[in-house]
Design a binder for these strands. Structure first.
Lengths: 343, 343
DNA sequence: GCGTCGGATTGAAACCTTTCAATCCAGTTC
DNA sequence: GAACTGGATTGAAAGGTTTCAATCCGACGC
């Protein structure tokens, strides 16, 4: 038997009021300003509510009150642990101000992203946090224009028409390569792609900066471009590196993210290349699986939870304060050295 | 400047109607039954909508129409790739019937789970899919009782008062151990815990069944209980196994999930134990990281996406068909043999 | 006893959309 | 030219909650 008896629709405040012998307004007061109603009445009403199985209708509440109690995070790819950690950070912040967080997964599709945004706007959510498929999409602008606070997470936009939180990827790239230089490597690979992704380009730039600042010849930093930031592509890149003649083969690789690094590591192990003796590896993101890899991975850590928390704070500020001004927050990454580079 | 000019609230159908010189009802028709309105009028109205930046108010729509366009999945732990894959399956099904999916993450907390459920019920979502912290919680029952379709995902309940989809964990345990028996192992560890989790218990039961069916002595299947199903606990378990005297040390381990198996693998590699020659490992779930591990992991695969899709279909059936009857769907797992057990 | 005060309660309006029966109107048929 | 047809449009009601000005009532001061 599915649910309630046929014909019975769920009880409304009106039913509760009748059952408790009070007016409609009093029931509402019990719900929203319990202190304004006398203890006896309050209890009578609450009793009626539970007797009738009353469940407040959020649509009606929101329609009348004009405010919603939810925040949304549109994530780029829920299967990347990095983003779920960011989401956890947002959740923590949302929880502390008693807002619910709903997650939407665009799964890398601009089309899905669009339809999620449309629905969220119709739902009048308090704010939208998003790691967009395409940071410069005009759809975001329009959404903000029409009055929904929007914060861009882990991406930056050319203009400053939004709040955003991100991590300094150029610095991250520099840290990684400086570490490898410290360890004495003279021939290093940068593994990442596609090149048009902001992250990939910025990390490469940082790597190049550090490389030339150390006075190394440009062509000793070899770029290995991949088609995506996945474990599979990392393995693939491993094969390509292995194919190089020994003289030109790098002794270390800096990967644009940990998934690539894990793939590369796997290729190395399965083909008998010792890590880090023959090939040192640096990843990026420091997801939990990095520390837990067969050879624990040196990685550039991004403050994932903090990223999320901060983004949530910005969106809340924008939604609450009339004199809000947009801010671009840039966090500093940190290198975590582990066995994959430490002989 | 945050959003629209002060004072301007978003346009309503009424505004659109006025701007287009038609009645309210016509605007609604354009929105909901565009074929009923003449092409010229329709266009005029649509033009007015975009001029005014009209965004339909979903609360009002839902209040009047009485139906919501969303499905919800309350996940146990968004950072476990297994659940995000299940979510992707649900999403696919939801998309095909034009429902939006919102994800909530209870992060293993019964309290968070409760508050998510309460809000979802108030929002009158079309249905709730959930992997509960505690499958036998009465809260689920009450929710269903009051009329929200509920489907339990990847768990089973003692009674049959819900639809549920799960995978046959007893069979999965059997498959794993049969495989190890085939490979000639005579001393095997079962790594998992805490024991009160349904999954952990069922997989152990299957393992024992296979073991005794093969006529092996009971005490040659050693149980290693862990405090949680995480990578860290897996490493920990590795240390415990290594501590056993060689005579009593198992030559293979069957882990209750892949995270444990990955941790165990990591411990083995870092302490020089060869996999699979000295220690064969079987995981469970076959998450993507399993195939991508340093030594690709043999694992018991669950049809994750299918699990999600099926759950979504059940909840939709329950929400649409008055004569719906609850079903408990049990899928069959499948062993995927890889290098971690294949010499 | 009268007037006043303040906390508790009430009742009606408002939020925005959808629905549906009623109306309108331009053609068509006889 | 009257009667009808059927598609397009209209107008009002309804949905469940919150809000807020108004009312009620018992207590208190004088």
């Amino acid at each position: 038997m599915p649910g309630r008896e046929p014909g019975a629709r769920s009880a409304s405040v009106k039913d509760v009021a009748a059952a408790a012998g009070v007016s409609l307004g009093t029931v509402s007061n019990v719900l929203n300003r319990p202190d304004r109603v006398s203890p006896e009445t309050r209890e009578r009403v609450q009793r009626a509510m539970s007797d009738l199985g009353f469940v407040r209708n959020e649509s009606a509440r929101q329609l009348r009150a004009g405010t919603s109690r939810t925040l949304a995070y549109v994530m780029l790819d829920a299967s990347n642990p990095f983003f779920t950690d960011v989401a956890a950070g947002i959740d923590t912040a949302a929880e502390s101000v008693d807002l619910a967080l709903v997650l939407c997964n665009s799964r890398n599709s601009a089309q899905r992203e669009r339809s999620h945004l449309a629905l969220l706007e119709q739902q009048r959510v308090q704010g939208v946090l998003i790691t967009p498929v395409e940071p410069d999409s005009p759809a975001l602008e329009e959404l903000a224009q029409r009055g929904t606070p929007v914060v861009v997470v882990d991406r930056t936009r050319a203009d400053q028409s939004f709040c955003s939180v991100a991590v300094d990827d150029v610095l991250g790239g520099r840290l990684a390569v400086e570490h490898l230089l410290d360890r004495g490597h003279t021939r290093v690979a940068y593994v990442g792609g596609p090149r048009h992704l902001g992250q990939v380009a910025d990390r490469l730039r940082g790597a190049r900066d550090a490389w030339s600042a150390a006075g190394r010849p440009e062509d000793a930093l070899v770029e290995v471009e991949t088609a995506a930031l996945t474990v599979n592509e990392g393995r693939e890149a491993g094969a390509r590196l292995a194919g190089l003649p020994a003289r030109r083969r790098p002794t270390a690789a800096f990967c644009a993210n940990d998934l690539l690094a894990l793939g590369l590591l796997q290729h190395a192990i399965s083909s008998g290349v010792r890590v880090p003796e023959e090939l040192a590896i640096v990843g990026y993101d420091d997801i939990d699986f990095a520390a837990a890899a067969a050879v624990p991975l040196t990685s550039v850590r991004q403050p994932r939870q903090l990223l999320g928390r901060t983004a949530a704070e910005l969106v809340l500020d924008e939604s609450a304060n009339a004199d809000h001004t947009h801010r671009q927050v840039l966090f500093t990454p940190e290198l975590v050295a582990r066995a994959s580079t430490l002989g």
